[in-house]
Structure formats: C-alpha cells, structure tokens
C-alpha cells in the first residue's frame, strides 16, 4: 500500500463520494454523531459517563434477542438499556455495595449474557459488527431505524433542552419550582439508551461510550456557555465522524476505531490549547507577557 493513495486534497474528499456505501456511511455517521454529541453535553455535565458506558454495554443481549426474533433491534436494545439502569438502581438501594461497583457489575453481566447468546443462537448475527460497528455495511432497514430514532431523540432533547440543563445543574431547584424531576431523569435515560442504539452502528458497542462523552468533554473545555457547549459538541462529533471515515477509507483502517480516535485527538487538542482551560492557554500566549 502506498503511503498517500490519493493525489490531491480534492481527490481525497471526492473519490470516496463516488461510492454509494461511502455516501451512506458519511451521512448516517454524521447523523448519529450529531445525536450523540447533543446528548453528550448533558451526560458530561451530569457526571453520567459511567452510566453511558453501562447502558451501551447492556444493550448487547437486547440486540441479539431482537435479531433472533426478527424484531427491530432498537426495541431490544432499548428494553435492556433501561432495564440495566433499573437493575442498577434496585441493587444499589437494597445492598451495601457502592454504586460504581454495582454499575460495573451489572453492565458486564449483561454484556457477557449478550456474548453467550450470540454463540448459542445460530443466526446470521455478525458479532464483529455489533462490537466494532459497521457504518460501511449499513442496511436500508437500519438506515430507516436510525433516522427515526435520531429524529426522536433530537426532538425530545430540543423540547426539554432547558429543563434538562436545569435538572443537571440543580435538580433541587427544579423540584422546588414544580418541574417533574422524575420524568426528566427517565427522559435522559431513555435518550441515552436510544443514542447508544444508534451509536453502536457507527462505532460498535465497545466504543459507543466515546461518542457519548468525548464531544461533550471537548466542548466543556472550550466554552462557558451551555448553548455553545451543545453546538461545539455536535460539531466536533460530526467532524470526527467525517475525518474517521475518510481516514479509514484511504488507509484501510477499522472505521469505528478511526472515528473515536479522531474524537480523542480533537479532545487532546482542546486539552492542550483551549483558550481558557487548556494547558497552554492559547489566549495568554497570544497576549504575550506583560
């Protein structure tokens, strides 16, 4: 393989677009990234990174069972995603085991169940594509499902944008002024499960948590305004997806891994050079010394 298989930047961008599967992959992954990026600002501010990890792993058996029964896999994933959270809450309340332990215990249990089920249920389930994603091989029914779920999550988050922000910031105040905190809690969990479902098509179950936390963390370093944080998070997620897919196309790399790596690099860049919160604080460098 030659090091630079493309000739110009123009051909770098245009050539892949001549393939139908690449156009579809770029579009669908951008959509998925936008949804996960939108949710990401709430999850990082709420401190639900581990919860995101748990839910995304726990959907595994749901996906397998749904495939086996011929149901939409989003349905199975959703049931197991929410179920895992309910189980975490139940065990935490009824035992003296600490919360992070319970979370780790429950989601690995679900994940293991999923893997065992895959080996037992002989069907055409591709374990590799569930674990690592397959944005290049996405089927038409998956496309429809992904678009439907993505729109649903975006609409829900848009309607309750400010309430969810308040819920993350000060749930006690929300409750005091008559806002239904219980509803918001489960709304956020529902969106998390749904986002995990669409996200796993892009990058797979193992890495989907990155889609749910990295864009938010990057945006958090770059702004002090909530709305800007959401916008930056969505944009950085989309850009990472595009970069990841292009890179994986030209250099024949695993697509899901490439997308997440692109996100990680953008985060590292913000971590080092963010104007206010970066290690090198670019603003100060530009301003020079007194």
């Amino acid at each position: 393989m030659e090091l630079f298989p493309f000739l110009t930047l123009d051909s770098f961008i245009r050539d892949p677009l001549t393939h139908e599967f690449m156009r579809k992959a770029l579009l669908m992954s951008s959509l998925v990234a936008a949804v996960c990026g939108f949710l990401s600002s709430y999850l990082t501010l709420k401190g639900w990174a581990l919860m995101g990890d748990a839910v995304s792993h726990s959907v595994m058996p749901g996906v397998v069972v749904a495939y086996a029964l011929g149901l939409p896999f989003s349905l199975g994933a959703f049931i197991f995603g929410v179920g895992s959270v309910a189980l975490i809450g139940f065990i935490k309340q009824k035992s003296r085991v600490k919360e992070d332990t319970v979370i780790g215990l429950v989601f690995t249990g679900f994940f293991a169940l999923g893997i065992v089920l895959v080996s037992k249920i002989k069907s055409n389930i591709d374990l590799h594509s569930i674990l690592f994603g397959s944005p290049l091989g996405i089927s038409l029914s998956d496309v429809k499902q992904t678009i439907f779920i993505s729109l649903l999550v975006v609409i829900l988050l848009s309607i309750f944008r400010k309430d969810l922000m308040l819920y993350c910031f000060d749930p006690r105040h929300a409750k005091t002024v008559g806002i239904n905190v219980f509803f918001l809690h489960y709304l956020l969990l529902t969106c998390l499960s749904l986002a995990a479902v669409v996200g796993l098509q892009s990058v797979g179950i193992i890495l989907v948590v990155a889609m749910l936390i990295t864009p938010g963390a990057t945006a958090y370093l770059l702004t002090d305004k909530f709305d800007n944080m959401t916008i930056i998070s969505v944009l950085s997620a989309i850009i990472s997806s595009l970069i990841g897919i292009y890179i994986s196309f030209w250099f024949d790399l695993e697509t899901g891994g490439s997308i997440v790596l692109a996100q990680t690099f953008i985060f590292l860049f913000a971590f080092l050079f963010a104007p206010r919160y970066g290690i090198f604080k670019l603003k100060k460098l530009f301003a020079g010394y007194k």
């Binding site: 501010l45 309430d163 002090d224 909530f226 944080m229």
Partner: peptide, 21 residues
C-alpha cells in the same frame, strides 16, 4: 451544593427562577 464549573452565566441562573412559571 452546586457545581461552580457548570457553563451558565449569572443571567442564566437567575432566569431559572422563572422556569416554573
């Protein structure tokens, strides 16, 4: 009791007092 690093301004926080109505 509050997350002082949350990305909201003085205006945003005080506006939260109006959310309920």
């Amino acid at each position: 009791g509050i997350d002082s690093q949350f990305p909201v301004s003085v205006w945003d926080v005080v506006m939260m007092g109006r959310y309920g109505s």
